[in-house]
Amino acid sequence: MHTLSLVWEDLWKITVASLILGAGLPALFAVGIRSLAYGTGGDAEEHGAGIAPAPHPIGRALAGLCFAIVLLVVGLGIVLIVASGFGQELSFDSIYPTIQDK
């Protein structure tokens, strides 16, 4: 049963981290899409006949921000794969990510 608790210890960490990144990033991407639609206006949003919503530049800016954050995190994910392949690891000890020896 000891193994069970050891595995469980790892699995719940994996679950929490995956929920934050694996569900959070798609949700953030969705916020980006929604903002972009708000920014684009017109037929990008569902609307009644003849009253097309006006475009809102702020929506486009917000969309850009969302997509940038998603890309940044995915980029860090790739750095993580590459770094661990070369015997390095990604550390968040100094808030911003740094690469160091394992």
Binding site: G22, P26, A27, A30, R34, A37, E46
Partner: peptide, 18 residues
């Protein structure tokens, strides 16, 4: 679980977008 939550969020967030 992760994918179900992600899907649910994505559909909630983009409701109203064409």
């Amino acid at each position: 679980l992760v994918a179900a939550l992600g899907t649910w969020l994505v559909y909630r967030i983009t409701a109203g977008v064409a």
